[in-house]
């Protein structure tokens, strides 16, 4: 499993080996449609976890950044039908995924981790120390 930790707020989208003409660049060919990936979000004592369905991308094609309390996930999906003949029947489109979330200052942005497997992205956001509930032992005299 690939782990990517990304806390660089000015992180450029990584291209998965594609040339700029094919993808990635905002100054070249306009990208195809962006899709909003469905997510689950859950919380434990020490973390928030965002799980997103993003089929057809790869760990090197996913960019995760935190800036101004916004968590932004961009996943590039390379066109994959170029070599597969002609589209005969189409029920869904192929394009990049995007999702963003506002996060409070209770997140430790330095510790964000992500893993991509089976077309599913899992991003783990550790809570800042200050908001992790601590159990205080009460001494009996």
């Amino acid at each position: 499993m690939n782990n990517l930790t990304n806390t660089d707020v000015n992180n450029d989208m990584t291209c998965c080996g594609a040339t700029r003409d094919q993808s990635c660049g905002t100054d070249t060919v306009k990208r195809t449609q962006n899709y909003r990936a469905p997510v689950d979000v859950y919380e434990t004592d020490s973390t928030f976890t965002v799980i997103a369905d993003m089929p057809g991308t790869c760990s090197d094609c996913i960019s995760i950044s935190v800036e101004n309390n916004m968590l932004t996930i961009d996943a590039e999906v390379r066109p994959r039908y170029d070599t597969l003949g002609t589209l005969r029947h189409e029920e869904y489109g192929v394009g990049d995924f995007h999702r963003s979330f506002r996060i409070g200052d209770g997140i430790n942005a330095e510790g964000i981790e992500a893993a991509y497997r089976n077309g599913v992205l899992e991003v783990t956001l550790p809570k800042a120390e200050a908001v992790v509930p601590r159990k205080i032992d009460i001494r009996t005299n």
């Binding site: 469905p38 689950d40 979000v41 859950y42 799980i51």
Partner: peptide
């Protein structure tokens, strides 16, 4: 999803 987790959003 772990049993002890609290679900905040469920789209999947």
């Amino acid at each position: 999803i772990p049993d002890e987790a609290t679900t905040l959003r469920r789209e999947r």
